[in-house]
């Protein structure tokens, strides 16, 4: 009987530890969620369900590390861009406002790349990983769209797989601006102006130093 009670108490303790661990994980996940902030002054959506303007608690923090595959099937990690200022541009082929800002991004990337600036386009188009034929077609469609838009910077696939670590905003386009030390110094949600994007790029270029650089996977 004593053994039985001890086992039961042990199980209770284990259950308690599991619950605490899950609660801690949930709290951690919530920390990185984007937060909807009403912007009545500028919103013209009339807004029952407007996507709205957002702020991100990720600003000021290390950019979450990731490794994704580009259109050529090569693996690309954020850590590969150690020491550079990077704009992560979350977009999708079905996103009309994303296509409006793309020509600005192409121009800005050309303009600022000599100073150490890079853009990584991250596609949030659905990928049917269980259906090889459909998956191949989806990749071709994304590549076609990239060609049509004259995108010259790398485009990475399967953005959904990193959505959670970047706040699961479900708003496109979204951009995070990462300085040379791997810290997110700015974020834009939705279509903004070329000037606004450029301001964030300059901030990313100005922030951080090579000395503060990163090891692989630390971004």
């Amino acid at each position: 009987m004593v053994v039985f009670v001890l086992v039961l108490l042990g199980l209770a303790g284990w259950a308690n530890w599991q619950n605490r661990r899950q609660a801690a994980a949930a709290a951690l996940a919530k920390q990185s969620q984007v937060v909807l902030v009403p912007d009545n002054a500028t919103s013209s959506t009339g807004g029952d369900a407007g996507i709205g303007h957002m702020s991100s608690p990720l600003v000021g923090k290390r950019a979450p590390a990731f490794t994704l595959t580009n259109l050529k099937g090569e693996k690309v990690s954020l850590a590969d861009y150690k020491g550079k200022a990077v704009q992560l541009n979350f977009w999708a082929t079905w996103c009309a406002p994303c296509k409006i800002e793309t020509p600005w991004l192409v121009e800005l990337e050309k303009q600022y790349s000599p100073q150490g600036f890079e853009i990584l386009g991250v596609s949030f188009d659905d990928l049917d990983k269980d259906d090889p034929k459909l998956l191949a077609k989806e990749k071709v469609d994304i590549a076609k769209s990239v060609a049509q838009l004259h995108i010259s910077y790398p485009v990475l696939l399967d953005g959904d797989s990193i959505a959670k670590s970047y706040g699961d905003g479900d708003v496109y386009p979204t951009s995070y601006f990462v300085d040379r030390s791997g810290t997110i110094v700015g974020a834009t949600f939705g279509l903004t102006s070329k000037d606004d994007l450029e301001g964030n790029i300059r901030k990313a270029l100005a922030g951080g130093t090579l000395q503060a650089g990163l090891g692989k996977g630390t971004r």
């Binding site: 996507i51 479900d170 939705g190």
Partner: peptide, 12 residues
């Protein structure tokens, strides 16, 4: 469906 407002879009 796939929805947008006047400046951004949501996933399908």
């Amino acid at each position: 469906y796939q929805a947008c407002n006047n400046e951004s879009c949501m996933p399908p």
